[in-house]
């Protein structure tokens, strides 16, 4: 298919304080039905969306962090997290949800979806995208 475009969803906001994170996730899930080449970028406060152990029971909001774990089922398995953004927030990869997918071309082996990249690499990922949706 020659009309497959490279979509990049850029996530820069913390969850819950604003609606951007949830909106982005919903658009990604809806967009996944169109079988495009989809990648997600998490930078700045967006890296907080992927932290483990979220529990919204006391604030009366829906905890949507488990839904990121379904992205692999939706064939969304390129998830780029910016190292500089993690560092600035005192976070490491270990603080993030383990997101995985099953590789159809490799006997359904379970593989990590998250790739930590530098800001320079992130800039290149953006540059190589056909469509960028920023949240």
């Amino acid at each position: 298919m020659s009309d497959v475009k490279k979509f990049l969803y850029v996530n820069r906001k913390a969850p819950y304080g604003t609606i951007y994170a949830l909106e982005s996730l919903e658009v990604v899930l809806i967009g996944a039905a169109f079988e495009q080449d989809v990648a997600l970028a998490f930078l700045d406060d967006g890296v907080f969306q992927l932290t483990k152990g979220q529990d919204t029971g006391e604030v009366g909001m829906k905890n949507f962090s488990p839904t990121y774990k379904a992205l692999g089922d939706y064939d969304v398995n390129k998830i780029y997290v910016e190292k500089e953004s993690l560092d600035a927030r005192g976070l490491t990869l270990d603080d993030l949800l383990p997101l995985t997918y099953e590789d159809e071309d490799d006997d359904w082996a379970e593989k990590d979806s998250i790739k930590v990249v530098s800001a320079a690499e992130m800039a290149e990922i953006m540059e190589q995208s056909d469509v960028i949706l920023s949240f």
Binding site: Y16, F48, K52, G57, E58, G90
Partner: peptide
């Protein structure tokens, strides 16, 4: 949070100002 780029700003001010943080909002964000 400890260890962020902005933590120092808070620790520097703690002598004069008392700081509080909302527990349920911490939990929500893991």
């Amino acid at each position: 949070m400890q260890g962020t780029q902005k933590s120092g700003m808070v620790t520097d001010a703690m002598g004069d100002i008392s700081f509080y943080v909302m527990g349920p909002d911490l939990k929500a964000r893991g």
